[in-house]
């Protein structure tokens, strides 16, 4: 799990540095927020897998369909 959090931190830092340097074009607050949000969602999903408590959207969809039909 430590490696995941380290990778997450490094990914964010490198991403922000690239955006700041202008290589990714004009990157304002909205772009940085979206970048961080999507990465964080991915990291949370990975954490849930590593902790053996997956946030299983497939199962949730199956349960919803079973409930209604």
């Amino acid at each position: 799990m430590i490696w995941l959090l380290l990778l997450y931190a490094v990914f964010l830092v490198v991403g922000f540095l690239i955006m700041k340097s202008g290589q990714a074009g004009l990157a304002g607050r909205k772009e940085k927020a979206l970048f961080a949000t999507i990465t964080s969602i991915g990291c949370v999903l990975w954490l849930s897998l590593l902790l053996q408590r997956p946030l299983d959207l497939n199962k949730a969809i199956g349960m919803a369909i079973d409930f209604f039909f």
Binding site: F11, G25, L26, F35, I41, G42, L45, W46, L49, K59
Partner: peptide
């Protein structure tokens, strides 16, 4: 404007979702 800002972070989401 820039797809890279969205594409690379989405790899985190899709790669995890694919293991569900």
């Amino acid at each position: 404007e820039n797809r890279a800002i969205v594409a690379y972070p989405l790899v985190w989401v899709i790669s995890a979702y694919a293991l569900l």
